[in-house]
Amino acid sequence: MQEQVIARSSTHQGGKGYSYNPLAQPFLKWAGGKRQLVPAIKKYIPRKYTQYHEPFVGAGAVLFSLQPARSIINDTNQELINCYEVIRDHPDELLSLCVNHEKNNSKEYYYKLRSQDRHDKFQELSPIERAARIIYLNKTCFNGLFRVNSQGQFNVPYGDYVNPTIADPAIVNAVSAFLNQRSVKICRGDFSEAVSTAKKGSFVYFDPPYHPISDTSSFTGYSMDGFGSHEQERLKLLCDNLSDRGCQVLISNSNAPLIRELYSDFRYEIVEVKASRAINSVGAKRGKVGELLIYNKYECKSI
């Protein structure tokens, strides 16, 4: 379809009591992260919105690029959401543990920390210890993947990087300030629950696990719960419901036939964009790939 630009939003950057901080940015590497696609995504963000919802927040590239005044963020990945909560509430303690991990970084140390979730004592770790562990594993594992097996155990091999930075204090403190000084509600649950309170004038950005474009391209290790065709169909029906409520909706997904078919009705516009994907276990599959941005066509004028 022909590209139709809605507007580049600047309405919710900064504001009373808070200044937009470019250092508030993703603190993790993330498969499917949207950092390099943010300029394209911003073209399809409404001029005005009352509240921002991101049910699949991931590393938060879009969230941090907007820094909205009011937002609800969510993810089913419990370790990820724990990181957001710890950065909000205990940034200094987290940074201290990350410095210790950085000093001790080695292949042997990596596998020692990785193995913790294979033992019962893992449940005894504090939220701060768990957050520091997952940030360390993320920054030192192969290709920055977050992948767990069917038992929910982190299973990515060591990446063998030279002097990796585990946690940048400037970024962690900026993210903590954003989470504390703006109205950010952090949830952990199903994507439908995360938008249950969305009202007319809200803006919802969905970045779900992408539908595979081939039988061999699916990435299912992000969490123990799969995200198959049924979930994609459920998401589409939810987008219809949000549209009926008067919400602005934007969805990122793969350029798969199923996705094009689901959003082929009159409500939506589909735009293809090219994204660079550096995180893939197969080197030949990294590089520019076609992805879809899908948005509902009408804007809510009376906010």
Rank of each mutant, 00 (worst) to 15 (best):
V148E: 15
N149W: 11
N149R: 14
N149L: 09
N149S: 09
S150E: 14
Q151T: 01
Q151D: 09
G152F: 11
G152N: 11
G152Y: 14
G152T: 07
Q153E: 14
F154Y: 15
N155G: 11
N155R: 10
V156C: 13
V156E: 15
V156D: 14
P157K: 11
P157C: 11
P157H: 13
P157A: 12
Y158H: 12
G159P: 08
G159S: 11
G159D: 13
G159A: 10
D160R: 15
D160S: 12
Y161N: 02
Y161E: 03
V162L: 12
V162R: 12
V162I: 11
V162K: 15
N163R: 13
N163F: 10
P164H: 08
T165N: 13
T165M: 12
T165A: 09
I166W: 07
A167I: 00
A167F: 08
D168K: 11
D168G: 02
D168M: 05
D168H: 11
D168E: 12
D168F: 05
D168Q: 12
P169E: 10
A170Q: 12
A170L: 03
I171P: 00
V172E: 07
V172A: 03
N173E: 13
N173M: 13
A174H: 03
V175A: 09
V175N: 11
V175S: 07
S176W: 03
S176I: 00
S176F: 01
A177Q: 09
A177M: 02
A177Y: 07
F178V: 00
F178A: 01
L179V: 04
L179P: 07
N180D: 02
N180C: 10
R182Y: 05
R182F: 05
S183T: 10
V184T: 09
V184K: 02
K185C: 05
K185D: 09
I186Q: 08
C187T: 12
C187W: 06
C187S: 06
R188T: 12
R188M: 08
R188S: 15
R188E: 13
G189E: 06
D190L: 04
D190C: 03
F191G: 00
F191Q: 01
F191D: 01
S192R: 15
S192H: 08
E193R: 02
E193T: 00
A194T: 01
A194K: 09
V195F: 09
V195N: 03
V195E: 05
S196T: 04
S196I: 00
S196F: 01
S196P: 00
S196W: 01
T197R: 08
A198K: 06
A198F: 08
A198N: 06
A198T: 05
A198G: 04
A198D: 08
A198S: 11
A198H: 08
A198E: 08
A198L: 04
K199Y: 04
K199P: 00
K200R: 14
K200V: 00
K200W: 02
G201S: 03
S202K: 04
